[in-house]
Structure formats: structure tokens, C-alpha cells
């Protein structure tokens, strides 16, 4: 009888000790968050047709036309030396000029830049020193001009590529 009592007591005490030993009021978890380099640039759409329709008598340069209907947005976390370059899919013929002007609140705009002869191998800077962060809905301005001596130009579509690069 005494042995049974001692045994039972030991069992109960062991259970209590075990439960107390494994009692846990905290748990931990390792959580890592990595942010990779992100470059994003997008345009709002296509500008309208740029059609030269008039000029001044006695002047070879016809009256230029502009379009400021589109915009671009960027997001980048790479650094503060990021820039935007622009180029056409193919150069314009001589006597026709396409200028591009990108506004910027995070970088330095180059103003109106002639992109008439800028192709993929010779892209030109239009915004430089863009700081990390986002710049939304910045205006894109196009100005198209032509010389009377260059003659007429049938409707021609050009693809303008804006590249966010470092």
C-alpha cells in the first residue's frame, strides 16, 4: 500500500514537473524581407497626330506643331543617378525635326531635345539625376517641325522609346 502511494505521488509529481518544464509562453519566427532593385516606367498613351499645316511666307521653316497630351510615370529604388533616355525606332528624314521634352520632379529635365536622329544605338538623355522614389504623371511634350524645302511627308508613325537606366 505504501509503495503504491509513493509510486502514484511520484507519477503525479513527474507529470507536473514535465508540464512545467515544457510550459511555453513565447514563440519566435524569423522573417526576412528583401527589396531588390526595381525599375518601372510607363506612359499614359499615345499623343495625337502632329500635322504641319501652315507656315510663313518667305520662311523655309514651317510652323511647328506640339502635343502635350501624354505623361509618364516612374518608380525606381536603384540610386540617385538614374536617367531617362529616348530614341526612335528609325530616324526621320532630313528636314524634319521631332523634339521631346520630359518634365521631372525627381530629376533634371534636359528640356527640349532633338530626337530626330536618335535610334536605339544613339539614344539621348532627356532626364538625368533622378532620385530614388516615384515620379508620377509628368508631362511629355512633342514638337514637330519641318522645312518647306523638305517637301511633304505622308503620315508616318514612329515609336518613341523611353528608357529608365543608370
Amino acid at each position: 500500500m505504501k509503495q503504491i502511494l509513493i509510486t502514484l505521488t511520484l507519477v503525479v509529481l513527474s507529470s507536473i514537473l514535465i508540464e512545467t518544464a515544457f510550459a511555453q509562453v513565447t514563440a519566435t519566427q524569423s522573417v526576412s524581407l528583401t527589396v531588390n532593385t526595381v525599375y518601372k516606367i510607363a506612359t499614359s498613351g499615345n499623343p495625337g497626330a502632329l500635322t504641319v499645316t501652315t507656315g510663313s511666307a518667305g520662311t523655309d521653316a514651317l510652323t511647328s506643331v506640339s502635343d502635350n497630351s501624354t505623361s509618364y510615370s516612374i518608380t525606381q529604388n536603384f540610386g540617385n543617378t538614374v536617367k531617362i533616355t529616348a530614341n526612335l525606332d528609325a530616324a526621320l528624314s532630313a528636314g524634319y525635326t521631332l523634339q521631346l521634352n520630359l518634365a521631372s520632379s525627381k530629376g533634371t529635365s534636359a528640356g527640349s531635345v532633338d530626337i530626330s536622329n536618335a535610334t536605339s544605338g544613339s539614344a539621348v538623355n532627356v532626364v538625368t539625376a533622378i532620385a530614388k522614389g516615384a515620379d508620377a504623371s509628368q508631362a511629355i511634350g512633342y514638337t514637330f517641325s519641318a522645312l518647306a524645302s523638305a517637301g511633304t511627308l505622308a503620315s508616318t508613325s514612329k515609336t518613341v522609346t523611353l528608357t529608365l537606366t543608370n
Binding site: 507536473i16 508540464e19 512545467t20 510550459a23 511555453q24 509562453v25 513565447t26 514563440a27 519566435t28 519566427q29 524569423s30 522573417v31 526576412s32 524581407l33 528583401t34 527589396v35 531588390n36 532593385t37 526595381v38 525599375y39 518601372k40 516606367i41 510607363a42 509618364y72 510615370s73 516612374i74 518608380t75 516615384a134 515620379d135 508620377a136 504623371s137
Partner: peptide
């Protein structure tokens, strides 16, 4: 005794922002 247990199903969580789903301008 007072028993209090708490645990997690896995000890490690890993997340990466890669640019996927990021909207330009945000």
C-alpha cells in the same frame, strides 16, 4: 498547473519585393 503554449507552424518566413506588381509612379 497553469499551462500556456504558443508556437508557429514554421520558424522561417522569407519575402522579396522584386518589382512584379509594382506600378510606375507609386
Amino acid at each position: 498547473n497553469t499551462i500556456t503554449m504558443v508556437s508557429v507552424s514554421s520558424g522561417t518566413v522569407s519575402m522579396t519585393i522584386t518589382g512584379t506588381g509594382v506600378i510606375a509612379g507609386q
